[in-house]
Each structure stands twice: as structure tokens, then as C-alpha cells.
Write a protein that binds this DNA or RNA. Structure first.
Lengths: 206, 206
DNA sequence: GTCTATAAGCCGATAGAC
DNA sequence: GTCTATCGGCTTATAGAC
């Protein structure tokens, strides 16, 4: 959390990610954040202006990367024949799981994301919808092509269930214990496989 | 929130449920709670001892009822032939949806529950597991009988996804807009139908 | 049981020296 | 860019009158 090889700004971001994931935005104070980052209290306001803006930059940093990875991943899946419902779901979940198993803060971020969604934070929803909504729509469109018999309304219900299953499972990632015989990489691949199977079957429900 | 027909204690519980659901445990202060409940600030400590204990009693009140309803509901489903995977899932979700559509605070509580799980609150998880775990295990057992080919590990993954889909969808309940042509009751029945279909198909995935 | 008043402490934010 | 010191405001919790 206080690795001196990183800049003050980066140390603050990492410490904040970890503490906010653990205690929530209201629950973790800037004093705790700066102490954990081995940085002066005033540095937050100098580098970020306010607590609120620190939170925004924190989300931006990760979501920009996650969305870019998902776009790349979707295009690759659509270009690799045969395309299937499973390959699209895989393209959606793989970058998220990769982030979730990154010990360099990504793990905290995934929990933070689940938390922020549960908090129904309207500003964050707006932010996500404005900045990353188009990618989510591309996935929805691609998925719909493989369950064309679904009415729009049914599709939305099911996509909602799929998001919920993923968000929840990822924030819990690690609770379903990794057997010591599996590497981190294998465990992640297994999680993806389990999710894709479940979600594909749920989407295809009669 | 300040209905004078209810006791001070009940008014505090209702106001707290609503405010904690909206702003989180750390985000909502006892001052806001007591103001919303039209009650003196000191009343919280008089009736509950501390903020922490207020939160505990709040969960206990709802979860006792929800768990009792689920037990009743499961026994009824198991006694009504033919028993199916769908009827068991229905028995699990119906009491939760009933709570979620109760404007007398249940709606707030459901969102609070989603939030608390996302918060990974260890005390709460322990509390749930200690006090209501046996009912959840009964459901898991009943479900397993209808997908006997699943390995324990696969079953656990899928139950996790099912919980996630439900928790998340319920906290969002109302986001998938109720068409004005449907009554509250019809919308709830529709949500249950959508969920049961999705979850059953997901659990039966090859 | 309900009230006022207050204790004791943490909060975010900033002014200003270096 | 980093530091100390501090402001004004909010927090939970409690003591004690009614």
C-alpha cells in the first residue's frame, strides 16, 4: 500500500481502492487512506481536489481499462468462427475475472464495483451509462442474436439476472475456495467456465 | 416515517431501514434517523443502546420473518405433488418478493440486504449463517435432488450465481419498470416467473 | 420515556510556511 | 509538492432535569 516506488498520486489511489472496498466510501476516511498510503493528509486535496473527485478518478482508471479489454475481447470473439452464445459470454466475463484476480488492487476494485452497484449510487450509474454504455449495448445486441426468440422484455430480465450473478460471484471471488491443487490461473478459468455455462443455459431457458 | 400510531421504537426502526438502505450504515447518521422518525436523538441510545445494536435488531426483525415464511413455503411446496425444481425455487423467491414489494419498509430492507452482502460484512454473514443457515441448507438439499448429476462443487457455484441473480435483481426491483397496465401483484408474479425460469435453466445446464 | 445540553472526538478542507 | 496547524462542522454517546 505504501510502496515508495510509486508516485504519491498512485499510492493514494491504491490505498483508497483497498480501503473503500473494505469500508465503503463513507466508512473509510481520508485520514485512513493517507495513513495507509504513507502520505500526508493534505496530499489528497492537492492531487485530487476532494474526496468525491478521488472516487471518480479511481473508477475512471479501472473502468477505462476494463471496457477497452471487453471491446477487444468481443471483437475477437465475433471474428473467430464459429461464434456462439458461449463465446460472447466468455468475452464479457474474461476481462472482469482477469481484473478480479489481479492482486495489484484489481481485486479490491471488483469488490468496490459490486458495492457501488448495491449502493445504487445514481451518479456512478450515470457515469457508467454515459461512458461505457455503448459497449454494454454491443454485448446485449450480440447476445440477442443467439436467443432471437426472446421478447425484448424477457431479454432484459435475463440480462439483469446475468449481471447480478456475475457481480455477486465476483465480489465473492475467493469465497468459493480455490483448491490448493489449482493455480490462480486455473481457478479463474474454472470460474469463467462455470459462469458461462450457467448464464448461457439461463439465457436459453424456454 | 413518522406515523404517530407507531411506538417510538418502531418509528426508529422504520426510519433507520429507509435511511440505511439509501445511504449505507456509515452514510446515514443517527441524527438523520431520529429527525426522520420525529423522535429525540437520545431515544436511539435509550431504546437500542448503540447504533450498532440498532442495526442488529433491524436485521433480526426482518430475517426472522423472511426465514419463517421460507420454511413454511418450502414445506408446502414439498407436500404439493408434483414437486419440481421450479416449485422449490418458487418457494424460495416468493417470500422475498413479497417482502420486496411491501411498501411498509420491506422494500427498503431488501435493498439494505443487497448492500450488506456487497459490503461483505463478516459479522452479518456470521449472523445469517448461524441463525438462518439451516433453512438455506434445506433448500440446497431439495434443489440437489432435482439435479442429482451435479457434483457438489458445481452445485455450489450455481447456487452462488442464483443467489446473486436474486439479490441483485431484487435490489433493483422497480428498475425494470412495472408497466402501468400491471398491478403491483401482477408485476411481482411476473418477476417470480422470470426468475424461476432463468434459475431453473441455469441449474440444469449440462 | 423524553427532553436539553454537552462531552469528546473524528471529519473534510484549507491557509500558509517551507 | 509536501508539510503543520487549524477551522468549522459533524458524529456517537451520555449526564442529568423533568
Amino acid at each position: 500500500m505504501s510502496n515508495p516506488h510509486f508516485s504519491t498520486k498512485e499510492r493514494i489511489l491504491s490505498a483508497a481502492e483497498d480501503l473503500f472496498a473494505r469500508s465503503g466510501f463513507a466508512g473509510a476516511s481520508l485520514r485512513q487512506v493517507t495513513a495507509s498510503a504513507n502520505v500526508n493528509l493534505a496530499a489528497v486535496n492537492y492531487h485530487f481536489g476532494s474526496k468525491e473527485n478521488l472516487i471518480n478518478e479511481l473508477f475512471k482508471r479501472r473502468l477505462d481499462e476494463l471496457t477497452a479489454e471487453r471491446t477487444k475481447s468481443l471483437n475477437k470473439a465475433l471474428a473467430t468462427k464459429p461464434v456462439s452464445l458461449e463465446s460472447i459470454l466468455e468475452a464479457f466475463v474474461a476481462p472482469a475475472l482477469h481484473l478480479a484476480s489481479d492482486r495489484g488492487g484489481g481485486q479490491s476494485f471488483v469488490r468496490l464495483l459490486a458495492r457501488a452497484f448495491a449502493e445504487q449510487d445514481q451518479r456512478l450509474r450515470r457515469f457508467v451509462s454515459d461512458n461505457y454504455g455503448h459497449v454494454l449495448k454491443e454485448f446485449a445486441k450480440a447476445i440477442h442474436q443467439f436467443v432471437p426468440e426472446l421478447q425484448k422484455e424477457d431479454l432484459y430480465w435475463r440480462l439483469d439476472f446475468v449481471s447480478g450473478a456475475l457481480t455477486y460471484a465476483m465480489s465473492d471471488f475467493g469465497m468459493i475456495k480455490k483448491p490448493p491443487t489449482l493455480t490462480e490461473e486455473q481457478h479463474r478459468a474454472n470460474a469463467a467456465k462455470q459462469f458461462v455455462r450457467f448464464a448461457a443455459a439461463g439465457l436459453r431457458a424456454p
